[in-house]
């Protein structure tokens, strides 16, 4: 009995040790299956990715995807790609680091420069939405919200956006050029609270923007509460616009849906966010096309051989 126990113990400990140190050194085995990682159907990144690779029907439909895909969030997919040699996933360009390999898309490297010059194709818009004109708790809040949106389109605004890893739209005016149009910014607004919300993908960018703009506009107080793209419209002009979570400025990291059409002139784009397909650093693959990615995600390619032998 005792011997048996000892034997079992020895076997398990050997197994555990081997498993801990067993990272194979044999290089990339192309006969292995591709493990597909994706975001959840409600994710804006997924929407941007699927539409970007011409597989729009998969943006909110799991049943068209290959069997046995793994669903996880941005960070979890990034970490998974440091472990899983045979996985493929996608993340925001801003999250990309050198622990994984970011794939070129249609031959264009995933860099900020390539998004600005509009050669890198895999990207999604960052949009804002304001409350309907006149539907603010104070005229000061409305004026500041409008000034904020004007600021987004200045070179000062785009500098802040670029600093945060997103890619700003083209702009030519500086804030100094246009600030005369916004008298509210000459007043002391330290008692005015502006509430920002919506997409959490945009949170970092939005916080940096409000932090940069507040000193330029009477030191208004910015409150950020980012809970997801759907809340961007819902909490400014939708069902929760008068609730406890009501916002002055909402954001969405995807195009607004038909059901989210607001009052004219209250919605617009502030930046691009690029999405990048990632694999393990040991993977032989360096570049993919939209077609490749579609074939991987739809299950037409099941092993790495299928893709690399093309």
């Amino acid at each position: 009995m005792k011997k048996l126990l000892l034997l079992a113990l020895a076997i398990t400990s050997v197994g555990v040790l081997a498993a801990c140190g067993g990272n194979s050194e044999e290089g990339f085995d192309t006969s292995k299956n591709i493990t597909v990682y994706t975001r959840d159907t409600s994710s804006g990144t997924r929407d941007g990715f699927m539409n970007g690779i011409g597989f729009g029907e998969a943006s909110a439909d799991d049943s068209v995807l290959v069997d046995g895909f793994v669903t996880n969030d941005n960070t979890a997919i990034l970490t998974a790609m440091t472990t899983d040699e045979y996985g493929i996933g996608y993340i925001s360009l801003a999250s990309l680091n050198n622990t994984v390999k970011g794939l070129s898309f249609d031959g264009v490297e995933p860099t900020v420069q390539n998004v600005i010059n509009n050669t890198y194709g895999l990207k999604r818009p960052f949009n804002y939405v304001l409350r309907a004109p006149g539907d603010y708790d104070s005229p000061e809040a409305e004026a500041i919200a409008n000034a904020f949106v004007a600021f987004l389109r200045t070179t000062d605004g785009s500098d802040v956006i670029m600093d945060q890893g997103a890619v700003a739209l083209e702009s030519s005016d500086t804030w100094d050029d246009i600030k005369a149009d916004y008298e509210i910014c000459n007043e002391d607004n330290s008692g005015v609270v502006i509430r920002f919300g919506g997409s959490d993908s945009i949170q970092k960018v939005a916080e940096a923007l409000s932090a940069a703009f507040s000193p330029k506009c009477g030191d208004f107080v910015a409150e950020h509460d980012h809970t997801g793209s759907s809340d961007g419209f819902k909490r400014t002009q939708g069902s929760e616009k008068d609730g406890d979570n009501a916002k002055h400025v909402g954001f969405a990291s995807r195009p607004f849906k038909d059901t989210e059409a607001g009052v004219e002139g209250t919605q617009g784009q502030l930046a691009w966010d690029a999405i990048v397909a990632i694999v393990h650093v040991n993977n032989d693959l360096d570049s993919v096309t939209a077609e490749d990615l579609k074939k991987i995600y739809s299950g037409e390619y099941t092993t790495w051989e299928d893709l690399l032998s093309e």
Binding site: A18, A19, G68, V70, A80, T83, D84
Partner: peptide
């Protein structure tokens, strides 16, 4: 993930 590899199974990143 490594344990599965040891058994010759390709797991999905250990998930």
């Amino acid at each position: 993930y490594n344990l599965a590899e040891l058994f010759g199974v390709q797991s999905k990143g250990g998930n």
